[in-house]
Nucleic acid binder design. Structure first.
Lengths: 203, 203
DNA sequence: ACTAAATTTAATCATTTGATTAAATAATTT
DNA sequence: AAATTATTTAATCAAATGATTAAATTTAGT
């Protein structure tokens, strides 16, 4: 009787993409050498160009992926009329904490990419009114007409995203370790909506 | 009668440093070409190496400067027993908003430098207990013993710093322009202490 | 004005790095 | 198995880039 074996075959193309995701998000475009990616993927340098033509093309591929990973969730969700503001806050916090815990380098990568090439980013963002005309913002303004939604968005996003940006500082200063950081981020999923609502109630 | 003229003489060394500050903070270490710095300073490439020996040395100089610009304020201030928590919150928010408005690239530069070289950063941070043993943290814990100070620090810092990190996104999406961004950041100097205190009162 | 020191430059080096090429090897089809 | 196609590699190229050198120019001291 012949043995049977289940093997997960990852195509070379996907191996290179995966390596590129890792190296680009960790080091950014300029600090990344195509040789680093080839090594990480366990293949030769020429093969990388055979598949993806150039470093820039490969980067754009990864960047588009990461952009929609970072912004993709928010779009359809903003105009959901069937959920309360409370529920939306809980979902946003829950989603971003989980997403960034699985991809801690995502914020700095995305922010860096936009900063170094805003023009390129404009093409990706379809409709800028998506946010300003959204049910979500209307719900906020109904709750607290006096507050500029800029402040609200900054605080909500900042509470979710900033810890992952500041993580290296906190770790270096020995204020947290990997484990306690993750525990506290899980706590925040419930706390952020509470804090944000407190901000809407105050003053 | 001889005319007299006041001329501010900037030494070549300082011109190069100033150019290095600008280019390094805008583009980061890897994306910066020493030729960019030389051009920005209006001098020749060789001169840069004559004065500063190497790109890395020059970078370390700029980095140390920016680190103390970013962290310097907080140290002595944390153990001031003569000020209330309220006053401290107002001063932190006021200080960081003004500092970052004058140096919008500072956060990303500092965070990037730490992330890409945590070991180097350790040497700069003298005593890690400075923060955890501070009067400031004791005041917070007295106000709300249940809250992990991690959350408090993240929110306070995030509210001050995150907007400057996210600024390019908001600008690209046409949610703010330069002018209204600065106005809103000035508003935040007063609002952040209110929000942070609301966070300490709630729940 | 002359000399010595400091400052500045053009030219050049060596290494790194993104990309290409032609040949070898492996997989698939007929 | 032979032929065809797809995959992989080593060797090499050209441009970019950090750094050096030796010479030219400017500045300061006497």
């Amino acid at each position: 009787m012949a043995k049977s074996k289940v093997v997960t075959v990852i195509s070379t193309e996907e191996k290179i993409k995966e390596a590129a995701r890792k190296v680009f998000t960790q080091k950014g475009y300029a600090a990344t050498r195509t040789r680093d990616i080839a090594d990480e993927a366990g293949i030769n340098l020429a093969l990388l160009n055979y598949y993806f033509r150039s470093k820039e093309k490969l980067f754009e591929l990864v960047m588009a992926e990461k952009m929609s990973q970072f912004f993709g969730f928010i779009g359809p969700f903003l105009n959901d009329e069937s959920t309360t503001l409370q529920i939306k806050l809980e979902r946003i916090a829950g989603h971003y904490v989980d997403l960034l815990q699985a991809n801690p380098d995502l914020p700095i990568f995305v922010l860096g990419a936009i900063r170094s090439n805003p023009g390129h980013f404009i093409k990706i963002i379809k409709d800028t009114n998506v946010l300003t005309q959204s049910v979500f913002l209307k719900q906020i303004q109904k709750k607290k007409p006096g507050l500029n939604p800029f402040h609200f968005l900054m605080n909500l996003l900042g509470m979710c995203v900033f810890p992952f940006i500041a993580k290296p500082i906190f770790e270096t200063m020995k204020l947290v370790d990997e484990k306690s950081f993750n525990e506290m981020m899980q706590e925040r999923k419930a706390l952020i909506p509470v804090w944000v609502k407190a901000m809407l109630d105050v003053k």
